[in-house]
Design a protein around this nucleic acid. Structure first.
Lengths: 129, 129
DNA sequence: CTCCTAGTTGACGTTAACGTTAGCTTAGTT
DNA sequence: AACTAAGCTAACGTTAACGTCAACTAGGAG
């Protein structure tokens, strides 16, 4: 197996155009982990696994979810349910999130239509170039 | 013309399930106006026009936009451009917002797919009822 | 050895978006 | 007349999500 590439905190920050502080903050509140820190220098290092996790967090943010909501989704995503009851709970949670997301998509499409209509109003009133 | 119905602040708040304070706050930062306040009691009253405006604000919030961004969109929406230059600016702004929104819709659809896939994984592993 | 760069840990500062409380007025009961 | 409900202003409080700054350490470059 190829040695997996690891990143420093500022490399990771640059990738997503955020600050190092933001990454440390996410760790502070337990949304990101940095195991295998250099035992001497205490420097953090990140693997692709953490990079993907961070990407999920930032996607959630862009969609308007709070870090708290994102945390719940991710925890669910990475949970390993034991019994049938837990599985059912997960499915129920997923369903409710799905409805939320579908509602959001619909609203966005309506907003899109509104803006389009609005825009056309001005395009049609322009002088022919 | 029929007399237009007006609402008190708490009626309006109840309609949208928000607090009166929130409405006053929106006025404070200039996103909502309440003309025609009772000259003696200083009580605010709202017409359908303001109700629609509030609805737009709340829709924006649900979609994850900040009040500042929403303010810009509404200002644009209600602006009355004079020359061709202004119209072009409005159209350009609308286009950029449209791209933003379309991107957001795409991301949401991807998230939706992810959740669906994830959910099916658990549904298929359940015992037949 | 000196300097510079990157990183670290506190800890306090900041902004948006309201919540909460106090003290006052007015309108409508009882 | 006393009380209650709804609203008002002014002002301080709160939470999320970082920004910023100080004081320190380790690893190279020259």
């Amino acid at each position: 197996m190829a040695e997996e590439k690891v990143f420093t905190i500022s490399e990771l920050a640059a990738m997503f155009d955020i600050s190092s502080r933001t990454i440390r903050y996410y760790e502070e509140i337990g949304m990101l982990t940095s195991e295998n820190r250099d035992s001497l220098t205490k420097q953090r290092s990140y693997t692709n696994r953490e990079r993907r996790r961070l990407k999920m967090i930032l996607r959630g943010k862009k969609l308007g979810f709070s870090l708290q909501e994102i945390r719940e989704m991710i925890e669910l995503y990475e949970s390993n349910p034991e019994g049938e009851a837990e599985k059912s709970m997960i499915i129920a949670f997923a369903d409710s999130k799905l409805r939320e997301i579908e509602e959001q998509i619909m609203q966005l499409q309506m907003l899109r239509e509104d803006i389009l209509t609005y825009k056309e109003k001005y395009e049609n009133s322009r002088v022919k170039s």
